[in-house]
């Protein structure tokens, strides 16, 4: 992670010094601020385990549920058309255990439940190094733009065995025993993924100091796999056994893709200098 930070820092410094011919907005080329991203939680549960449509998991469906992502950013305009930005996104969500167990666990345990009860929590951090290109006649950081850049998604999952568990029949012994499976691996698990962000927006300036952006962003790989995620048919997932030991690993990325797939955002920033 430290290496990433150093790279980002170097890129930003290079951007700032590479082209002092940039107009900026009223001469200001650097801004920092906060962005609020949101999207409707149609199928996956949000942080409150709510979903709009639901996929037969444990989430409270039929409610007005939204994914919420908080984002901090720093942007520099090295030219009048281009801007380089670095952002860090933070979000909380949940997986409502909508995915069915697929096979027996080692051939001896039969799950009585189709899937674990409850949900597990996900906290995600995404790091994006992005480039904004401003449309004809606009001047970075003001105006209409498109943006893109690589994303590193990191996510931490936690589950509560009292909430997330499944009933199973253990045939390994002499007699079949009914067991309450609560072991889904370590309570806290870390995962990583990569993606490509693409988006478009419009930035306005208030009192020549405050920036107000609005637009949308997508994670392209999430978008491509979106249709499969929606119906729970993520490519490759059915060829692999899903049991309590890998349940989280098999489901967390799909949920994270759901959060990042498409968001509208509103950004508030300050033009620093």
């Amino acid at each position: 992670m430290k290496r990433l930070e150093v790279i980002v820092l170097l890129v930003m410094l290079f951007a700032y010094h590479s082209n002092c011919q940039s107009t900026g907005f009223m001469g200001k080329r650097v801004m920092a601020g906060y962005s609020f991203n949101t999207s409707p939680a149609f199928f996956g549960a949000n942080a409150d385990n709510e979903t709009i449509l639901g996929t037969n998991g444990s989430a409270y469906s039929g409610t007005a549920a939204f994914n919420i992502i908080h984002e901090g950013f720093l942007e520099i305009a090295p030219s009048s058309k281009w801007e380089i930005g670095f952002s860090c996104r933070y979000y909380k969500t949940a997986y409502d255990n909508a995915r069915d167990f697929y096979t027996l666990n080692g051939g001896y345990i039969y799950f009585n439940d189709d899937r674990p009860s409850g949900y597990y929590d996900i906290r995600g951090l995404s790091y994006t190094l992005y480039f904004r290109y401003f449309g004809a006649r606009y001047i970075a950081p003001w105006g209409r733009y498109m943006m893109f850049g690589p994303v590193i998604n990191t996510m931490k999952t936690t589950y509560d065995p009292a909430i997330m568990h499944a009933s199973a029949q253990d045939n390994s012994g002499y007699i079949t025993q009914t067991k309450n499976i609560t072991d889904f691996g370590p309570t806290e698990q870390d995962y990583k993924g990569v993606n490509i962000m693409f988006g478009a927006g419009r930035s306005r300036m208030i009192a020549n100091r405050v920036t107000l952006d609005y637009g949308f962003n997508t994670h392209l790989l999430s978008l491509i796999s979106g249709l499969f995620d929606v119906v729970g048919m993520t490519p490759g997932s059915y060829s692999t056994n899903v049991d309590n030991t890998n349940y989280i690993a098999k489901t967390v990325r799909g949920r994270v893709r759901g959060v990042n797939r498409f968001n509208v955002f509103i950004k508030v920033g300050i033009l620093l200098f």
Binding site: T23, F25, M26, S80, Y138, W142, G143, M205, N208
Partner: peptide, 12 residues
């Protein structure tokens, strides 16, 4: 004809 448009273009 927002203020930011005018400011940006005049400054430019």
């Amino acid at each position: 004809d927002s203020a930011d448009l005018i400011n940006a273009k005049v400054y430019q």
